[in-house]
Design a protein around this nucleic acid. Structure first.
Length: 813
RNA sequence: GGGCCUGUGGUCUAGUGGCUAUGACGCUACCCUUACGAGGUAGAGGUCCCCGGUUCAAAUCCGGGCAGGCCCACCA
């Protein structure tokens, strides 16, 4: 069937996207004869602001891998998924409905979250996943709030608890006063800011001891003053008492090596808790605990006249008061880096609460060596992982004081206080809504539920278990785990990658996947990150109004994994041209193949040397491209295929065979058939190599030309081409042929003659001998008479010297 | 302060020891060749960030800088 003159991308793409899903083309076959290729798809946050070009790019990169592996004969397991756990969803719901968890019931709140999640998921699925032609198996869809996912997360907790890898402790924890929950180290983001350093005098036996602090509001929480043990200025004060100004109580003066003599005055006040060092010293020196901060970031009665104020207000008031009394001796502006909550940017505080922790500090070495067993793409991201693990300072705090999320499956016995955990068969449970199924070991049946939910990563770290159905289908899980690929972005190596590796190790002493590949990170034109607040976000929907999906995917195909890529709309132009060229070349072939009937004897029917050349070159290309695809270097593969297609196939080969095809009476039907077979084989091969990147146009071309002969329902279910045509001699002749062709074209261009004009082509004896088998094609494509000349004859204006060939052209006017 | 990445024509980019440095976009000239003018052919345009070293030979390896980016870190 001949192709239409014009390629209607929109209609074609819509048609195939619908068909693929309806026909289940990409469904996991669970075919015992095939090796599985399981992909641990990143569950996108189902929030409406997440549809920018970076996501479109990354998910399309993953799809290209899936499609490639499918062609390579793997049984690809590619689940779509959504993450609807966690703080962003809560925050979104709070803002949209103008409610807060303080005034809404847990049940109602969770229902709203769930409802919003479903809506946003649908939009996400339709707008991104389906319209970009991704090849998920929609039967495998999961979301992180599904009962099954909750069950897996709770089962993980129970298993780790039973293994002694989880503990509960009352400790100062990282706390976000906006979200009012504990956080993990991984949820911190460092922010640079300017702040004021105040110099405040403490009284010591009549003397004034000047301390420098950025947090004067913490004066009422001061429990000690520290100096460096070797600091001659203050040595004599160690062991004495200092009086806290305004609040007039005594604190001990102590020493610690960690004090920086050169910062401020070299004297530090320790408060519970102003920062991380305070926590450290508080523990190390067994200091008193003086809590002034509530969970919502306001100060309590211990803060005296600051009671009820927020941290910011308190700071302002206390500075005014100190100033009034002449207690600010000096102040300066300094640059400070503060840890903030990565979701909302609020500086974190330390609050003493009871929380659950997963032990990770004890396993740093093991976790690094587990990371080393995984293939990192690109490999330097392993260094970043290693760096993070080495720098860990806290065990992983997994409990969060939020509503929406997976409940921690624990009750506490009212009588003996012992935690009571359900059995795995009972999961998922909600301790707030249910009671334990049996009494405590002490006999009591009175319990208090744990009201907290898990850190979102507690669930996300189990995506291999959720995706591969750890509890639901153990046989399948056994087959698929460890998975083959985890694609993800580099900013969550410390969270998603780390926690997943940790979980796999703690539960199973296994790695979660064979390969982790870090996707391309899209920047704006000027090389800055895309953020809604900066107004520089490019939306996928907008691009798709102007460019076809395959056009977008071509651009994705040129991106390198693990690298940053500034988005420039001009980069889509090259793809547009390529697609047009592709369609037109295929259209030409479709016209040529209208009377074509393939048969078994085809291998022998490729009789012409230039046909053999093309197939030999194609065979090399197939192996090369495959090698690059295996190494996640899609751009390199694409570039080589494109180069072959454009120059060897279109510019040269198609021109060479036109004479044979259009004028079969001149060269005979055998020569024509040879060209038809070659066109069929080479175009079919090219389509399959391009199919992972350009699934729509290749499917359309396949459907029109090849399907009737191949009898496979979709190009995406065929296999990576292996033409395997080896013919070094023809290859070399063809390469020489192309060199001569280039010289002829250049000469004709110089002489400003149309290619239509008949030329005399003079070839040296040696060259003529080499090209003898291809002479008829050469005559036809150059529209020349060919003559022989002496090898070393030189003439001005001739092609002598070019590429070491001796070609002379004489045009007949 | 520590770790990692990057630096190649106007822009983006390939190349990790070897002839005259790859390609794309843009630019210029010519060509309306029956698949394609969203095309074809040719052309202009580069101190391969800088300095030093290793080598017969360096964009490439080593050392030291400079610039940009990312990650980490207890200067209150």
């Amino acid at each position: 069937m001949a192709l239409e003159k014009h390629y209607d991308a929109k209609a074609v793409e819509d048609k195939w996207q619908k068909h693929w899903i309806e026909a289940g083309v990409y469904n996991f076959k669970n075919d015992a004869s095939k090796k599985p290729y399981a992909i641990d798809t990143p569950p996108p946050y189902a929030s409406a602001g997440h549809l920018h070009v970076g996501h479109g790019l990354h998910y399309t990169q993953i799809d290209i891998v899936a499609r490639y592996k499918r062609l390579k004969g793997f049984d690809v397991y590619f689940p779509p998924c959504f993450d609807n756990n966690g703080l962003p969803t809560e925050k979104y719901v709070e803002e949209k409905y103008n409610i807060s968890k303080a005034t809404t019931s847990r049940k109602e709140f969770r229902e709203l979250c769930l409802k919003e999640s479903r809506e946003v998921e649908k939009a996400y699925a339709d707008r991104v996943f389906k319209t970009l032609g991704h090849s998920y198996d929609w039967n495998l869809l999961y979301t992180t709030i599904d009962p099954e996912a909750q069950k897996v997360a709770q089962a993980s907790f129970i298993d780790l608890y039973n293994k002694g890898l989880i503990y509960r402790a009352k400790e100062p924890v990282l706390w976000c006063t906006y979200h009012q929950t504990a956080l993990a180290q991984a949820e911190l983001e460092t922010k640079e800011r300017n702040t004021t350093l105040y110099y405040i005098p403490f009284k010591v036996e009549g003397e004034e001891l000047l301390i420098a602090t950025t947090r004067p509001e913490f004066l009422p929480a001061c429990v000690a003053v520290f100096v460096h043990p070797e600091d001659d200025r203050y040595k004599h004060l160690i062991g004495k008492k200092a009086v806290v100004p305004l609040f007039n109580y005594e604190v001990p003066i102590m020493s610690d090596e960690l004090v920086d003599k050169d910062f401020g005055t070299g004297v530090v006040m320790v408060c519970t808790f102003g920062d991380k060092t305070d926590v450290l010293w508080w523990k190390k020196h067994n200091l008193e605990l003086k809590v002034i901060l509530n969970k919502d970031g306001t100060l309590n009665e211990n803060a005296g006249f600051l009671k009820g104020l927020t941290i910011k207000e308190a700071k302002k008031q206390i500075v005014e008061k100190l100033d009034e009394k002449g207690l600010i001796k000096d102040q300066e502006t300094i640059q400070q880096s503060v840890s903030t909550c990565w979701r909302c940017g609020t500086p974190i505080e330390f609050i003493v609460t009871e929380q659950w922790f997963v032990k990770v500090l004890d396993f740093k070495q093991e976790l690094i060596s587990q990371g080393g067993k995984i293939t990192w793409v690109p490999k330097h991201f392993f260094d970043r992982y290693k760096n993070w693990v080495q720098g860990l300072q806290w065990d992983w705090c997994i409990s969060r004081q939020r509503f929406y999320g997976v409940p921690i499956p624990v009750w506490y016995c009212k009588k003996c206080g012992k935690p009571f955990l359900p059995s795995i068969e009972e999961l998922p449970v909600d301790p707030m809504a249910q009671k334990p199924s049996k009494p405590c070991s002490c006999g009591s049946t009175e319990f208090v539920p744990d009201e907290d939910v898990f850190d979102t990563w507690m669930t996300s770290s189990l995506t291999p278990q959720i995706a591969c159905k750890w509890l639901e289908n153990p046989d399948l899980y056994k087959k698929l785990y460890p998975m083959q690929l985890r694609p993800q972005s580099h900013d969550i190596i410390r969270t998603w990658a780390f926690y997943t590796i940790a979980k796999s190790f703690l539960h199973f002493k296994s790695i979660p996947w064979e390969t982790i590949a870090i996707g391309t990170y899209v920047l704006d034109e000027k090389g800055r990150g895309m953020h809604k607040s900066k107004g520089n976000v490019v939306w996928v929907d907008d691009l798709l109004k102007k460019y076809s999906v395959d056009n977008f995917r071509y651009w994705v195909g040129t991106a390198n994994w693990g690298e940053d890529l500034p988005f420039k709309e001009a980069d889509l132009i090259a793809g547009k041209r390529f697609l047009t060229k592709l369609w037109n070349a295929a259209r030409f072939v479709s016209l040529i193949l209208q009377d074509y009937k393939p048969s078994q004897s085809h291998e022998q029917s490729v009789t012409e040397v230039m046909d053999k050349w093309l197939l030999a070159k194609l065979s090399i290309l197939e192996k090369e491209a495959s090698k690059f695809m295996d190494a996640f270097k899609f751009g390199e593969a694409l570039k080589r295929v494109e180069n072959f297609f454009w120059h060897d196939f279109c510019d040269n080969y198609l021109e060479i065979v036109k004479d044979r095809l259009y004028n079969p009476e001149k060269r005979g039907l055998k020569a024509k058939l040879s060209a038809q077979i070659t066109l069929y084989k080479s175009l079919y091969s090219l389509m399959r190599m391009l199919a992972p990147i350009l699934p729509h146009i290749t499917e359309e071309i396949y459907d029109s030309i090849f399907k009737q002969f191949e009898n496979i329902e979709s190009i995406h279910l065929t296999s990576w081409p292996e033409t395997g045509f080896e013919d070094e001699e023809s290859f070399n002749i063809g390469e020489k042929f192309v060199e001569v062709l280039t010289i002829v074209r250049r000469e004709k261009n110089k002489q400003r003659k149309s290619l239509k004009a008949k030329a005399k082509l003079w070839l040296s004896k040696d060259l003529l001998n080499i090209l003898k088998p291809a002479l008829q094609d050469l005559k036809a494509v150059t529209n020349s008479e060919i003559f022989e000349t002496e090898a070393l004859e030189t003439e001005a204006g001739a092609g002598k010297g070019e590429e070491g060939l001796d070609v002379r052209i004489e045009l007949l006017e």
